[in-house]
Structure formats: structure tokens, C-alpha cells
Design a protein around this nucleic acid. Sequence first.
DNA 1: ACTTGATCATTT
DNA 2: AAATGATCAAGT
Length: 226
Amino acid sequence: METGFAPSPERTLEDLLAHARALVGVELGELADGLGLPVPAGLVRTKGWSGQVIEQELGVSSSGARGPDFASLGVELKTVPVDARLVPLESTAVCQIDPVAIAAEAWEGSYAREKLARVLFIALEVPPGARSVGERRVAAVRLWSPDAEQERALRADFELFVRGFFRRGRAEEITGHLGAVLQVRPKGKNAADTRDGYDARGNPTRVGKHGFYLRPSFVAAILSGP
DNA sequence: ACTTGATCATTT
DNA sequence: AAATGATCAAGT
């Protein structure tokens, strides 16, 4: 795949957007070939692969580093699998939660808000009956920042979780049913994967790892925009 | 059919 | 171990 763009990192937001938009219509398999990356055979060991191909193509050097993918641009990159109507097939992970730190955070100043301040969504259409992640195709590109209404909704959910649960040592009582646009769901190696937190009496304990996720309906609205 | 809770893969 | 990237699959 030759997109005519120079290697990473992207120097300006315009460069990054132009590069991303040039990928619309391209299959991930082609993209991977152009990058010299192997395309996984079948559907095992593919989790995360789509995001990593897009990262490499767009020049995210250090995946795994904390903070925005394009630090100098303040842009977070997210890929999301969608159907032919651009409706997400999955929720979108935002970040992991530090139960101790978040108890002292306000929405303003929170890591979650920083992550969501400016997001480059790359929608990847999954063909029905696809036999490989290489068959996914870049379907849409959206640079998004929350508008006033979305910001209110995000903040309301964030405060529900922080004030109602984390700050009261009730993290383990959170379920995926809570939150209108933002969810808190498990985000660990497995159910036994824990980290430091507090119990309801304020004593140190271990709590299951959780992360913030955007509901598919919320991302659907973002993708349906311009 | 959809969501929630559980889990997988890679990198530092 | 802990962050990143996510998707799987059982339960509803």
C-alpha cells in the first residue's frame, strides 16, 4: 500500500488528518503488507492487531506509552469495528482506572477527560463473514472533541462513578449497566487481576482492574457526524 | 440481538 | 507488573 505520505511522526494536525483520510477504502491487509507486517491467519491472536496496524501506518511510535498517541498534537487514536452502517460492533476502551488516584480527581483534570479531549476515530468495517482481520476496511475517519452536550454527559457519568463508587470504596459494586455514555467495566488480565484500592471502610484492599469504555451508541453518534 | 463481564495480544 | 491496543462469548 502506497499512500504517498512520509514516515512518522506526523508534523501537523493537517498532515495527520490527510494521511488518515487517504486510508478510507483501504483494507487492513493491504496496509499491513505495505508496512511489512504479517496478517494473522484466522481469527485467533488478533485482538489489538487492527489498532496496531493503524498506529504504525499513522506513525505512533510508542504504543504502550501513557498519554495521547500524538502527544504534540494532543490527539488520541482509536479504531472501532463497525458494520456497513457505521454502527460500532463494540464499545471503545478509554483508559484503565487507578482506583486510588481517581478518588481524588475531578472530571476537569482527570486522565479520562484528557484522553477524550481530542480523538481521531478510525472506523473499520468488518465484512459479514470475514475470515481475517486483514479483510477489515477503513470506512470513516472522524476527528472529534466533545461538544457541550457530550461533555456534560461524560462528566455526569464520571461523577457518578467517582463520587458514588470509587470515592466510597465501592468500586466492586459497579456494573456495566451504569453510565449513560461512559461505562466502567473490567479491564484486566482476568477476573483475578487486581490493584490497590480502598474498601467501604476506607481500608486498603485489592480491587479488580477496571477501565472506562464509551458505549457503542455514543460512538455511533460521533461517527454519523461530518 | 445486544450487553456485560471476562479475556486476549503486544510492548515497556 | 502495568500500560497500551482491543475482542470474545456467556447471559440476558
